[in-house]
Design a protein around this nucleic acid. Structure first.
Lengths: 229, 229
DNA sequence: CGGAGTATTGAAACCTATCAACAATTGTGG
DNA sequence: CCACAATTGTTGATAGGTTTCAATACTCCG
């Protein structure tokens, strides 16, 4: 289960104009994280919040018998670990070698307390996350394998790539297993559906970690169950 | 698909000691909602936030072809509709005849802006919701039918009932269809699993809307995949 | 009492998981 | 640099759990 790869992603969002952490930026410390190394574990005391500078992070929960659910993937510019309960309720791990900037939660909370605009921003961020989770619950609860994969590709592309033109290449830093655990499928099913999408000329798969989208319309249609899945 | 029942739930949480809305309480207006009537629709402008006084609310999303995912159920004392994006991203409907107290979102935002404690409370609330969603994603993505039903019963009981003793009766205001759409199953599967749990002496089903838990240990075990599901 | 809606139960079909084999890739060390 | 091992991904055959289709029972109300 260990990856020893050293492939690395370039930051898609350099710093972001809407950097909500500007006031605490000087308190941040950059950290380098090797592939598959944890940023924090579920149950850990939540003393820090992190901003992803480069790389990619997966956030997941484990069942006692090892079954895993990846709630979400995070890319450069994203903030994670902002758990207000004092304890992380998910585990965060690097997918590839990543750089994250760590901020003391205490200082963030202070800014939230002193700065109403910041407080509102943080609330907006929290509700954005919740909205994302609600959309993903539809995927997990009501979509078939093809619809799940198509939804994932569209969503992930939307987050990681600005353009959306035919032939657009989308980086998939995560493994098939990560995708499977995100979508409630097995690696075999993920692989089969991707192969079928390639066979149907919807996508190309130049290598394991790249998807070239040939038809966004087809992908959108499949994602929402509009056409033959 | 219409329920015409008039059964009604008594408030389990009368007002709550941790009533976060105390400062805006006077601005609230009570509303009565018939069973199956919407409180708001996905896409509606989010001008109000609501506190459930009595009854039960389901929050859901619909796919174009009618497939439905119920993200969560809410009971007396709960706050809903606190979408900061300005637009509701889910639909909320009464399950049974309910009383909800409506607050202008504007006034809540003002309190959040002026009162740091309130801001922090709202953030905590938002992250509690996110944590709940993350737990439910494990259920949707990685559990089988029996584990899903058991998880739901344990979670719902935890929210609606203080006690947790053998023979404890738990009210299920929602229909089998609501439960199915919450757990990513069909009504038939929900019915079958409940029948099986009754046959296995884990629960009793005196009527459609009541579950008597005979063994919490068994239910907990099944929920986490600990024993034969 | 009757009718509509809801819930239960059964049989068959289907989608995805499981098991298994193989291919491709990556990393290691001679 | 190449051979080898380990990991990851793909593809095939089969099995199994849940859905689908169908029939019946049960409630709630008019």
């Amino acid at each position: 289960m260990l990856q020893t790869s050293t492939r690395q992603l370039q930051p898609a969002i350099p710093a972001g104009p809407t950097d909500r952490l500007a006031p605490v930026e000087p308190l941040g410390v950059n950290m380098r994280l090797e592939a598959d190394k944890p940023l924090f574990w579920e149950g850990d005391k939540a003393d820090y919040t992190y901003k992803i500078i480069s790389g990619a992070i997966r956030v997941c929960k484990l069942m006692p018998d090892g079954r895993r659910q990846v709630s979400d993937f995070f890319l450069p510019g994203d903030l994670i670990g902002f758990d207000f309960a004092g304890v992380h309720n998910v585990t965060a791990e690097a997918i590839v070698e990543s750089i994250v900037r760590r901020y003391p939660k205490q200082s963030i909370e202070r800014v939230v307390r002193d700065n109403p605009v910041m407080a509102r921003d943080m609330l907006t961020l929290a509700y954005d996350r919740l909205a994302t989770a609600q959309v993903h619950m539809v995927t997990l609860g009501r979509k078939n394998a093809a619809e799940r994969i198509a939804s994932f590709l569209v969503t992930h592309a939307h987050r990681s790539t600005a353009a959306r033109r035919p032939g657009q290449s989308v980086a998939l830093p995560m493994s098939r297993g990560d995708i499977a655990d995100h979508l409630g499928l097995t690696v075999e099913t993920v692989s089969r559906v991707l192969s079928r999408l390639r066979h149907d000329r919807v996508i190309d798969l130049p290598d394991f970690h790249t998807v070239v989208v040939r038809s966004w319309e087809a992908l959108d249609g499949i994602a929402e169950g509009g056409e033959a899945a």
